[in-house]
Design a protein around this nucleic acid. Structure first.
Length: 263
DNA sequence: CTAGATGTTAAGGT
DNA sequence: CACCTTAACATCTA
């Protein structure tokens, strides 16, 4: 489930395993994943280069292979990375394999449900601009956060989910953030007070940062979180009330109707 | 068998 | 223009 914390986890994983090794070949097993580039072009461009460093923005991961050459990864709904030893068989759903010189290791871009994207770009900032991606959710300061929510009406959750406004928050963490801030997902953003917005901002940072740490350590998310109770039989970890669900911003939302008032 | 699932986007309606 | 809903993509699981 790659939202910001998971993609940050992939970044750290890639940084820890795959930097500074000469790339000997790139195999694309399924070309649906490629965006604006052919398998041959991708392989040709990366061959004999090394991944130097990486950068995450929202749910995108960019890996620098040269001054003007960045690999772009988006994980869709089910994407992930796996670093494999020479004798390890990549999973069937590995769509792209980056082969390294060092003892036949390879990095696999796995993507069961085929919503992922792999591309090559020259300039990360230009790419983000062209796509209209907003500021990263952990990069944003309160003044910017506030003005984004003040500027747009509609359900607060829809704004949090909109990557053009704030990048990195997906359906599950949006619910978690709203739960923590005690804000109803369908509440109109314009009707939130300054105090609500401040709480929401703090909740956003807390949830995303905490989830990133938990993920990195391989720990479960806290039981006090909504996410671990999502589902029909779920009860609010704060008040014990049965959780409710509804559609907001086109996605299923879980929330506690007692703790999260619509206002 | 059916519905729904972490993401994104397009199309259509109000 | 602002906002909403629905559908679509591919595949798996409850």
């Amino acid at each position: 489930m790659p939202e910001l914390p998971e993609v940050e986890g992939f970044k750290r994983y890639l940084d820890a395993t795959s930097l500074r090794q000469r790339i000997t070949s790139v195999k694309v097993r399924d070309t649906y994943v490629l965006q604006g580039i052919s398998a041959r072009e991708l392989a040709q461009a990366l061959k004999n280069h090394r991944f130097e460093n990486s950068r995450r923005h929202g749910k995108h991961l960019f890996v620098r292979a040269d001054d003007h050459l960045w690999l772009r990864l988006h994980f869709g709904m089910t994407g992930s990375l796996q670093y494999l030893n020479g004798d390890e068989e990549p999973p069937k759903t590995a769509r792209v394999l980056f082969h390294f010189a060092k003892s036949n290791h390879q990095l696999a871009f796995d993507d069961q449900r085929k919503f992922g994207e792999v591309g090559l770009i020259k300039n990360v900032d230009e790419f983000l601009k062209k796509r209209g991606i907003g500021s990263d959710a952990l990069d944003i300061g309160f003044p910017e956060f506030k003005s984004i929510l003040r500027k747009h009406g509609g359900a607060v959750k829809a704004i949090l989910l909109n990557q053009k406004r704030i990048a990195g928050i997906g359906n599950l963490y949006a619910d978690e953030i709203l739960f923590r801030a005690k804000v109803h997902p369908a509440a109109n953003a314009r009707r939130l007070s300054d105090r609500d917005l401040a709480t929401l901002f703090r909740a956003t940072r807390y949830v995303l940062e905490k989830a990133t740490v938990r993920r990195t350590d391989g720990d479960q998310l806290p039981k006090s979180w909504l996410m671990t109770h999502r589902g029909k039989e779920g009860k609010c970890p704060r008040c014990g009330h049965k959780l409710k669900s509804g559609t907001v911003g086109g996605r299923t939302s879980w929330f506690c109707a007692r703790c999260q008032k619509r206002k």
